[in-house]
């Protein structure tokens, strides 16, 4: 594909900022009530593992995994890991082994966070998609943003050295989190999903985006409402708010998140310090085998000892 193909059709709604300010206002009224429960089964000599829980908007209790290096500084940098669409949020021990405190969030609907909200998979992507005020990703996004508050509530976390990362849906959530949480000092987004929704459903016919095509096949009269809703949730609409250093990797043969949407997203990112890594010959892995070292260096530069502190 040519990079010039990357022309997003989604337009940022005029009241985009007002919509999200209102959502954040609702969320701020909900106490976080963070809780860490030691998990001796998953804890090893080098990594302490906890099951984490906190309360998010609509008073949904959200689960997460919290890992910290057994040997750490009084103030340790932190990484928040965000999950793929159908991924079961992993225990982020590897990040802890690299010297970070790591929080792996299970937003509502995910395993361990589905008691109060469970639209299912497939279905999450189109759950209440005609109404931005109740669309599934409204709460889902807030859940991830409040993960930053969980990190900030921990005395061992250095609040000036927090990063966020993930791939696929985790990449999309990385974009929205970096946009909405100024505490994020570095972000790495892989194969970002939830960016260019309505372009993606034309460019590819694979799940999970295919859920929208399924929905519109059955309910063609609702297209305008769908388009209106997803414009508020499109990562491309959030991108200009990002100011922290950020790297994005995409696969040029990505069959899940079309690379055209990755290019379109990258062009809209507001940060000056941004770098795109397009991997030819790669699909939804977005070059992970090679790119992992790039991500490690990026976060080490921005978050580990020696990084500038404010």
């Amino acid at each position: 594909m040519a990079r010039d193909d990357a022309m997003p059709t989604a337009k940022k709604p005029d009241d985009f900022d007002a919509f999200w300010e209102d959502v954040l206002g609702q969320a701020s009224a909900i106490p976080l009530e963070p809780e860490l429960v030691p998990d001796p089964l998953r804890t090893s000599d080098d990594v302490e593992v906890f099951q984490a829980f906190y309360t998010s908007i609509d008073r949904v209790r959200v689960a997460a995994w919290y890992c910290r290096p057994a040997k750490r500084a009084e103030r340790t940098p932190a990484i928040m890991f965000l999950p793929g669409y159908q991924m079961d949020p992993p225990i982020p021990k590897e990040w802890a082994r690299k010297g970070y405190i790591a929080l792996s969030v299970a937003p509502r609907g995910k395993l361990r966070s589905m008691r109060q909200f469970n639209p299912g998979y497939p279905n999450l992507l189109t759950h209440n998609i005609v109404d931005r005020h109740t669309y599934a990703y409204r709460g889902f996004y807030v859940d991830t943003w409040r993960g930053i508050d969980v990190l900030l509530s921990r005395p061992e976390v250095d609040p000036a050295r927090i990063g966020v990362t993930g791939s696929s849906q985790g990449g999309g959530l990385t974009i929205t989190t970096a946009a909405m949480r100024s505490e994020v000092r570095a972000a790495s987004a892989g194969a970002p999903y939830l960016c260019g929704y309505m372009d993606a459903v034309e460019l590819t016919h694979t799940y999970p985006y295919e859920e929208i095509n399924d929905y519109l096949r059955l309910h063609p009269e609702r297209r305008r409402d769908v388009e209106s809703t997803v414009a508020y949730f499109d990562g491309i609409s959030f991108a200009d708010r990002i100011t922290c250093p950020i790297i994005v990797n995409i696969g040029l043969q990505d069959n899940v998140c079309p690379p055209e949407t990755g290019y379109a997203l990258f062009d809209r990112i507001g940060a000056r310090d941004k770098q795109l890594y397009p991997y030819d010959g790669h699909g939804h892995d977005a070059g992970r085998a090679r790119h992992t070292a790039v991500v490690d260096r990026f976060f080490a530069q921005h978050l580990l000892d020696g990084a500038a502190r404010t």
Binding site: Y85, Q86, M87, D88, L111, Y121, P122, H205, T206, Y207, P208, E210, N213, N255, V256, G283, H284
Partner: peptide, 15 residues
């Protein structure tokens, strides 16, 4: 080995 049941694996063409 995952909690989610897919109709067809993610990324497979619906066709």
């Amino acid at each position: 080995y995952q909690s989610v049941l897919e109709i067809i694996p993610q990324g497979t063409a619906n066709l």
